[in-house]
Amino acid sequence: MKSKVLLMGKSSAGKTSMRSIIFANYIARDTMRLGATIDVEHSHVRFLGNLVLNLWDCGGQASFMENYFTSQREHIFKNVEVLIYVFDVQSDTKSDDIAEYTSCLEAIREFSPDAKVFCLVHKMDLIPVDQRDAVFAERSEELQVLSEGLSIACHPTSIWDETLYRAWSAIVYSLIPNISVLEAHLENFCEMCEADEVVLFERATFLVISHATRKTHHDEHRFEKISNSLKSYKLCCSKSMTQFDSIEIRNSKFAAFLDKFTSNTCIMVIMSDPTVSPTAMDINIQVAKSHFEAYVSIRK
């Protein structure tokens, strides 16, 4: 099953950077060496087994953009499932950015009216912390107005922190078919283990696919923080030519177990009872694994 995902936005907005970090194991600093993308770079990313993201990373220099809207219009904009439009929050050509975004929406309406649209207000790290919320609120309001008639989702992002993972988790989540069935099973599993929370990650990217929560938690950003942390550790392990298979972390208040789950996922189980034994948890996870395999690998 292939999903066409367009990545657009003006040159040096950060499109290639984010896809390289999420899908190609770059660290943020490596992106400084990236050159401008010439025309469109296609990449196929296998996600959860059968779901293939067909990423069209569209170079954002003006001459390319113009072609997308004219001679290549249909080729670029038809059959799009998701449009990701990246805005450099500190852009000095804001009105041009907006004009291009509007042209892009026009073409989307024409060729892929059902496409989901994600607007990423990117490079938020360049805005002082205390102004970020306000700047983002203002931008996303502007974008909502411009995108009249389409439902868009806006996210503040930066390659330097976990916000990138939140946005991309939301993006891939929107592409997973039968997600509600999967979620119901995750709820059950969470009940069965008497866990506070169960989180399902895609194994290569550590993007969060879904979670089930029985005990409310104050930090709504916790999943992307964990994604970011685990992904960094994965890269650290790669340097030693190894990978972690399972992780157990505890203190007097909790125990967390992360384990390989289905062939493309890992699962993390959080317990308030810190005395729960890793062996017992392992058995629970093994039992659930076979049950889940059918739902997590997507068929069509």
């Binding site: 923080k225 190894t242 399972s246 505890r250 203190n251 208040k253």
Partner: peptide, 29 residues
Amino acid sequence: DVGCIYGMGENDDTGLGYDAESASVMHLN
């Protein structure tokens, strides 16, 4: 990172979720 999220008590004076029971095991491939 994980301790800060799930392991903070009401009176965690370290702010780290790090206490006398803190422990971890990771199995590598």
